[in-house]
């Protein structure tokens, strides 16, 4: 797989637009369909904001994103942090059937990652969390 783009910046909300611009730009040049670029953007924001808010528990740390494409089947984004171990793919989806009074305000971000991305795979690599988002170029 050819590496298209990568970016390392502190895990701070102010850097969210830079991460988004890097990955959506890579998705476009990596032949991801325009409608799917929206999905990538949303899933990416949710994954990044989760790391920014929770992974480093108030301490400083970085996030690295790496984008790859084989130009035939898959565009892949890896999101890497060195915060506490957390498998975002293991979180159960929120209950979407409750009425307004009982509806919980959290959990939707993780639902978007699962629903909008063709494959979300988590692995712990040494002291790092790696979330791999796989986007099909053909579906």
């Amino acid at each position: 797989m050819k590496r298209i783009a990568s970016l390392i910046l502190p895990a701070k909300l102010e850097h969210l637009p830079a991460f988004i611009a890097t990955v959506t730009g890579a998705a476009e040049s990596g032949r991801v369909a325009p409608k799917k670029v929206f999905n990538v953007e949303l899933a990416l924001e949710e994954a990044l904001v989760n790391i920014m808010n929770y992974a480093y528990e108030g301490k400083a740390g970085d996030i690295e994103v790496v984008c790859r494409s084989d130009n035939r089947e898959w565009f892949v984004v890896e999101i890497i942090d060195s915060g506490k171990a957390f498998d975002v793919t293991s979180v159960p989806p929120p209950d979407l059937t409750t009425d307004l009074s009982d509806r919980k305000v959290g959990g939707l971000g993780l639902l978007f990652i699962k629903r909008l991305i063709d494959g979300a795979v988590y692995r712990r690599e040494g002291e790092k969390n790696v979330l791999e988002l796989r986007i099909s170029l053909n579906s």
Binding site: E45, L100, V105, L108, G109
Partner: peptide, 13 residues
Amino acid sequence: SSAGLRSLLATAK
């Protein structure tokens, strides 16, 4: 994103 939805949900509640 979910940040926007959370704000709308909290306002509605």
